[in-house]
């Protein structure tokens, strides 16, 4: 029990420097890179007075280290600042408006990519060096190379325009929007037992989440394959055979289960890839998540919102990797006991 405690404490403590480094990186990118962020935001033609006023407001007229301390201090109190446009709402509220959409998309994309990756990875790993193994390795490279916007548009053309089977953009038929509980439409419509909303939101989710899921499944193919090959070569698998256990139970109950442990430890990194892919997916499918939100605010040169969104990404990624590692500790008995 003590080893688990030590693990959890160490892991939680390790998250702090990680977040700190990422926040510093964001600060560095936003302030220290060549160029004045205010001018980058409002353009060269703005009046000197307006620029001065904005600089003062963003505390850019203070020494750099003071800005840095101030920046960290505000974040510590959960303050991401206020938007520079449109009613100057707190950035955190704006992010929270868009976060459920991104979460919904990435979770579904994640499910598709893991299912596809598991199936293809197992087919490849069962017989290393075989024809199917090669075919699945090619699959993994091909799907990873599918440029998300292009692949998304092709799916839109096939399923939306040609087959008229699925909607090509948006999250839901706006008339059917369910009562806001979590902001995740599939969940909200299930909670309120709103079947039309459920069906509409799932239909809208299909193409974007499949696009994201298929492209990223190639990574899981590789991970599952190499991990499974390693596990199947271990002594205890041969020992299982020597006891006459059925092939299927050796492969799934003993082989795959053990192979998934190292993959789990890499889930955090994979989730980051998912978030990056989601930016392109959201843009392609006009999906109103954080990705489209970030791009919109970059276009409007809303400096504080851009900074706040990136900070949000950083904290989110760090927390996900923390959660993944804690799940791992719970699942692997060698850490748990």
């Amino acid at each position: 029990m003590t080893s688990l405690k030590t693990y959890v404490i160490t892991r939680v403590l390790l998250t702090i420097p990680m977040i700190f480094i990422l926040l510093t990186l964001v600060f560095f990118v936003m302030r220290v890179l060549p160029g004045n962020p205010v001018i980058a935001m409002v353009g060269m033609k703005a009046s000197q007075r307006y620029i001065k006023q904005l600089e003062h407001e963003l505390r850019l007229d203070k020494p750099l280290w003071e800005q840095y301390v101030d920046y960290l201090n505000r974040l510590l109190h959960g303050d991401l600042g206020r938007s520079m446009i449109w009613g100057r709402r707190p950035v955190i509220n704006e992010i929270m408006d868009h976060f459920p959409a991104t979460l919904e998309l990435t979770v579904w994309g994640f499910i598709f990519s893991v299912l596809l990756g598991l199936a293809t990875g197992v087919v490849a790993g069962v017989k290393e060096g075989g024809k199917m193994d090669f075919a699945m390795r090619v699959y993994s490279i091909v799907v990873y190379s599918l440029f998300i916007p292009w692949f998304g548009m092709v799916l839109q053309l096939i399923f939306g325009v040609w087959l008229h089977a699925l909607p090509v953009g948006g999250r839901i038929n706006p008339l059917l929007t369910p009562k806001h509980i979590t902001g995740i439409y599939v969940l909200d419509s299930m909670l309120t037992w709103n079947l039309p909303a459920l069906s509409s939101s799932i239909r809208h989710l299909m193409l974007p989440s499949l696009t994201l899921g298929i492209v990223l499944s190639g990574i899981y193919t590789r991970l599952v394959r190499s991990s499974l090959i390693e596990v199947l070569g271990q002594d205890f698998i041969r020992a299982c055979k020597s006891r006459g256990l059925p092939e299927r139970s050796i492969l799934f109950k003993h082989g795959l289960k053990n192979a998934l442990i190292p993959i789990l430890t890499m889930m955090g990194l994979q989730f980051a890839l998912l978030l990056a892919g989601a930016v392109l997916t959201e843009t392609t499918f006009s999906w109103p998540g954080i990705g489209t939100f970030l791009m919109e605010r970059i276009e409007y040169r809303d400096f504080t919102t851009v900074q706040g969104t990136v900070v949000f990404y950083a904290i989110f990624v760090a927390l996900i990797s923390l959660i993944v590692d804690l799940i791992y500790a719970y699942i692997d008995p060698r850490v748990r006991y």
Partner: peptide, 18 residues
């Protein structure tokens, strides 16, 4: 297992760790 069974050299790696 039923008619012939086997004990292996390295007990550290011959059991399923999970």
């Amino acid at each position: 297992g039923r008619e012939i069974s086997m004990v292996f050299q390295d007990p550290m790696t011959s059991l399923d760790p999970l």
